[in-house]
């Protein structure tokens, strides 16, 4: 009897297992987006070790590059002094222009493009898989990081926060294939949705849209929590589709994702998502999709 029961149980598990891919492929194919303690329990356990490892590896690299590998320093120093002198002159010019711009903005009644507070975080985990790209940063829920907040560097957009632990957060990178971003072509103001594709991004536009190699893309600020005007990347290739309707624009992001050391998390989070969280609470994010629709 007991043997019969075990055999039945195994049959049920086997059938469930064979059906699981169908359930999986009928889902939205989105990564876990959660700040729940239970979901991230394993990551909370692993985080201190990851932090220690990263700190130790960083120390070794710093000691090597600051005290041992110094053969190019003298040449670089001379070049940097020359650059610095040139930049000092330019800065004086820029400061003057900045004052002029703010005066003009005030006159025109424009708001500053981004005025929210921000959180500076250190990158402690590299992107783990070539095909599914995230980075881990050293600031989490305790520091005020929330799901949906945009992450940027001085160069441009990095990605969006998808998970938050107590002292860490995972940022979904712009170049991941699951990442979409609403952008504008700075020169022509044409709008489109940028999609990650390995080490670059692609943008599909109507063939009539005017695009040139070297054009800069900026965030549109319409959806996704990114403020308007953040630099995203530049157009490096334009290919025309055989349907004679569309063109595929290849965009090289300004951010070098292999060399990010710090990111700035902007507290200008996704307004729509925040409204939902404020109304339904944090637990809403962990609910299955069907329940969310019902709720």
């Amino acid at each position: 009897m007991a043997r019969h029961k075990t055999r039945m149980l195994w049959r049920v598990i086997l059938v469930a297992t064979l059906l699981s891919p169908f359930v999986f492929f009928s889902s939205a194919l989105r990564p876990w987006t959660s700040s729940s303690q239970m979901t991230l329990l394993s990551q909370e356990i692993l985080y201190p070790f990851e932090y220690i490892w990263n700190a130790s590896a960083g120390l070794v690299v710093r000691v090597w590059s600051h005290y041992v590998a110094l053969t190019q320093v003298a040449t670089q120093n001379t070049a940097l002094i020359e650059d610095m002198n040139l930049l000092k002159t330019k800065i004086l010019d820029y400061e003057e222009k900045q004052l002029e711009i703010s005066r003009l903005r005030q006159l025109l009644g424009f708001a500053q493009h981004f005025q929210g507070t921000h959180i500076v975080a250190e990158v402690i985990g590299t992107r783990s898989y070539p095909s599914f790209k995230t980075i881990r940063i050293s600031e989490g829920k305790r520091d005020g990081v929330k799901i949906g907040m945009p992450a940027v560097t001085a160069e441009g957009v990095v990605g969006r926060v998808i998970r938050t632990g107590q002292k860490f957060a995972d940022v979904h990178l712009l170049i991941d294939s699951n990442f979409n971003l609403d952008v504008l072509l700075q020169r022509t103001r044409v709008r489109g949705v940028l999609k990650g594709a390995d080490s670059y991004c692609v943008l599909k536009l109507n063939r009539r849209a005017e695009v040139r190699i070297g054009d800069t893309l900026i965030t549109s600020g319409i959806i996704g929590g990114f403020a308007k005007g953040l630099p995203v990347g530049r157009v490096v290739r334009i290919s025309y589709e055989s349907d004679n309707i569309s063109q595929t624009i290849t965009v090289e992001p300004w951010t070098n994702f292999d060399r990010i050391e710090e990111v700035i998390v902007l507290e200008n989070q996704d307004q729509e998502l925040q409204k939902i969280i404020e109304t339904a609470g944090d637990a809403w994010l962990n609910k299955p999709f069907e329940d969310q629709k019902g709720g």
């Binding site: 990564p31 995230t134 881990r136």
Partner: peptide
């Protein structure tokens, strides 16, 4: 562990 660390679609490794 894998799914909460990477940006893989939820359920991929479970499956």
């Amino acid at each position: 562990v894998l799914e909460t660390r990477l940006a893989v679609p939820a359920g991929l490794y479970l499956c």
